[in-house]
Design a protein around this nucleic acid. Structure first.
Lengths: 344, 344
DNA sequence: TTCTGGCACTCGGATGGTCGGAGTGCCAAG
DNA sequence: CTTGGCACTCCGACCATCCGAGTGCCAGAA
C-alpha cells in the first residue's frame, strides 16, 4: 500500500517538474494535453488532470483563469529547486570560456567587472557581484604618505587587492622619521591580520611613542580604524539590466520596482548578505524580503580565494527562470573567481 | 512689409514653443483648440492651424495620424532649445540643497556617487557622471611599496583624488634603498605635473641609476607609463535607470536599447566625449550617434576644479524632456561639483 | 492681405457582441 | 486507479459600430 502511495507521489512530482520545465520554456500556462505530448509520462491527460488538481490543492500550482493551463507558484518552484532539479554543470567549452574570459583581468576592478558581465551574459539575467568585503580580508600593507606638513595619506591594501585611501589631517607637523617609524610598527603588527582584528592589535601603539607624537599617532590610527570598520564601503557591481526587458511582455508594472531595488546598494547588499556562507542560496518570489523583488528570484553564492567566502555574487531573474542552468552558471563563475583571486 | 512677415514668424515660433511645452507636460499630441485655451495667444484656433500647417511643412512638427494633434520633431526641439528656451536657473533652496548634499562627501568615489544620484533625482532622468579623467589631472604623489622581494606595488594619486594602483613584477630583488631613491626622484620630477607630461619628464631617469638597477627602474617606469596612459580606465557612474520606466507607456520597445547602451561604458564615454569642453551640449534624438539612443536626448556639460573641465556629466532622457529645467539642473550640479573638487 | 467661423471629412480608439478553442471537472466504465 | 467521453467555462481574437477630437479648406470679415 505504502508503495502505491509512493508511486503516486512520484508521478505527481514528475508532473510538477514537467510543468515547471514547460512553463519556463514557453512562458505560457501549461495544460494537461500539452504536458503528455511533450513529456512521455505514460499516462493520459485525464490522469494528469487529476494530479494537477491535487497539486493545486496543495498550493504548488495555480491557474490564472478558470479555463487556462497551470502555472507554478512560489511554493511549486521551491519544491522544484529543493527536490526535483539538479544543478546543471557547465559544459567543458563553457568552463573554458569562463576561465579564459576571467584570466585576462588586470586588477580587482577588472576582475569584478568581467565577472559581473560574464554572469549576466551566461544567465541572460541581471548579475550582481560584491567586492571582496573588507571585513573578511587581511592586511597586505598599510602605507603612509606625507602630502603636506600636516597632511598624511593613508593607503590600505588588502590581500584581495582592494585599495582604500583616506586623507588624515594631523594635529601637528609630521616628520618623516615619525612617519616611517609608525609605518614600520603598524605593518609589523597588522600585516597578514584580518581587518577586524587590527584595532585590537594596535591598541597600545600610541603608548610606545613619545608624548609629543601621540596625538598624531592616535589621529592616524583613528582614521585607520574608521577605514577598517567602514562597512558602508561595501561595493557592488551590476550588469545585465537590459535583460529585464525580456521578463515577459506584461512587465512595465513589474520592471520599475526591480530597477529601483537595483539602484539601492543597500537593498542589494542586504540581499546578498542573506546568502548562506556555504552553498547556494535561492530565494524565490515572496521569499525575498524586499517587496520590489516579490516577482523575482535571487540565486546567490559566496566566493573566496580559499575555502572561505570573502564576498557574494548572484543573479536576479524572474521567478520563472531556468533554475538548474542559472545555478550551474552561478556556481561555476563563483568557483573560477575564487581561483583567480587566489592566484593574484 | 518686412515687419509683418516678422510678426508672422514670431507667432509661429510662439506656437512651436507652446506645442513643445504642452507636449512635454501632457505627453499627448496637442491640437489647435487646446493650444489657444492653455496659452493666451491672441488668435483663433483656425489661425493656429494655419501656422501649424506651415510648421509641419518646415519639418518642425509632425502629426502621428491624420486626425491627431501635433508632436514636435527632433528639428522642432532643436529650434526650441536653440532659440526659444532659456535655461531655468535653480531656485535658492534648490541650490542650497545641492550644496548641502554634496558637501557631505568623504572621498572622490563618494563625490561622484552623490553627484550622480543627485542629478538623477533632480531631473528624474538617467544621470551619468564621468570620473575626473586621468589625462587632465596632475600627479599629487606616486608611492612605491615593496610587497615581496621582487614585487612592488605602484600607487598613483592625482590631484582630483583618484587613486590607481598596479602590481609590478620586477626582474630582480628590489632593495629598500633603491626603492626610496626611486620614489624620491620620481616624485621630485612628476609631482604637480599633468599626467600625459610625466613620461617625458622621467625619460632619462634610468640613466641616473647604476647599471644593475636599471632593469628594475625601467620595469617600474614602464608600468607607471602604462597606468598614466590607460585611457580605458576612464570610469563612469550611472543612476536613475528606474526613471526610464516613466518614459511613456509605449516604452517596452524603446527601453531595451537604452538600457543596453547604458551598460556599455564605451558608448557612454563616447557620448560624453562628444560634449563640447565649454558650454552645455544638447543632443536631440537622431543627433545621437548611437542608434539605441535615437529617441532620447542627452544634455551634458564639462565640470572641473578650476576653469578647466576635467570630466563630463549629463543626463539622458526622452526627447520630450523639460529642456530648460534639465539644463538648469545639469549646469548647477556641474558648477557645484567643480567647487567641491577645488576645495578638496 | 490676414484672420476667423463654419463645415465636411478623416481616422484612432473605445465599446460591445460573437465565436472558436483550449482547457477543465466530473462521471461512468475499464 | 486510470481512462475516454462530455458538458461547461471563459479568454482572446475578430469584427462592426460609433464617438469625438482634430484637421483642411473656404468664404467672408477686418
Amino acid at each position: 500500500m505504502a508503495g502505491e502511495v509512493r508511486q503516486l507521489d512520484d508521478r505527481k512530482l514528475a508532473v510538477l517538474r514537467a510543468i515547471v520545465q514547460d512553463y519556463v520554456g514557453t512562458e505560457e500556462p501549461v495544460g494537461s494535453k500539452a504536458l503528455v505530448d511533450r513529456h512521455n509520462l505514460g499516462v493520459s491527460p485525464a490522469t494528469v488532470r487529476n494530479d494537477m488538481a491535487a497539486l493545486e490543492e496543495e498550493g504548488y500550482i495555480h491557474q490564472p483563469h478558470t479555463s487556462a493551463g497551470r502555472i507554478p507558484t512560489d511554493k511549486g518552484y521551491r519544491l522544484f529547486v529543493d527536490k526535483l532539479a539538479e544543478v546543471k554543470p557547465m559544459s567543458a567549452p563553457e568552463r573554458r570560456a569562463i576561465r579564459h574570459f576571467l584570466d585576462g583581468a588586470v586588477d580587482l576592478d577588472d576582475v569584478v567587472a568581467r565577472t559581473v558581465r560574464l554572469l549576466a551574459q551566461l544567465t541572460r539575467q541581471v548579475a550582481v557581484v560584491q567586492y571582496p568585503s573588507l571585513s573578511r580580508s587581511t592586511v597586505r600593507h598599510i602605507e603612509l604618505v606625507a602630502l603636506a606638513p600636516a597632511k598624511v595619506m593613508l593607503v590600505l591594501i588588502t590581500n584581495t587587492g582592494r585599495v582604500e585611501q583616506r586623507l588624515v589631517d594631523c594635529p601637528g607637523t609630521v616628520g618623516e622619521t615619525l612617519l616611517s617609524d609608525l609605518r614600520a610598527r603598524v605593518n609589523a603588527r597588522a600585516a597578514g591580520q584580518r581587518l577586524p582584528d587590527v584595532p585590537g592589535l594596535l591598541e597600545e601603539l600610541p603608548a610606545l611613542f613619545e608624548a609629543a607624537d601621540r596625538p598624531t599617532v592616535s589621529t592616524v590610527l583613528a582614521t585607520l580604524f574608521e577605514t577598517l570598520a567602514e562597512q558602508s564601503e561595501e561595493r557592488i557591481m551590476l550588469a545585465g539590466t537590459a535583460n529585464l526587458t525580456r521578463f515577459g511582455h506584461d512587465f512595465p508594472l513589474t520592471i520599475q520596482p526591480v530597477l529601483e531595488a537595483l539602484e539601492e546598494q543597500v537593498v542589494l547588499l542586504r540581499l546578498l548578505g542573506e546568502t548562506a556562507d556555504a552553498g547556494m542560496t535561492v530565494r524565490i518570489g515572496r521569499e525575498n524580503a524586499y517587496e520590489g523583488l516579490n516577482s523575482t528570484s535571487v540565486v546567490s553564492v559566496g566566493y573566496g580565494s580559499g575555502d572561505e567566502s570573502v564576498a557574494k555574487l548572484g543573479v536576479i531573474g524572474p521567478t520563472r527562470m531556468d533554475y538548474p542552468g542559472t545555478m550551474g552558471a552561478v556556481r561555476a563563475v563563483a568557483r573560477y573567481v575564487g581561483q583567480i583571486l587566489a592566484e593574484s
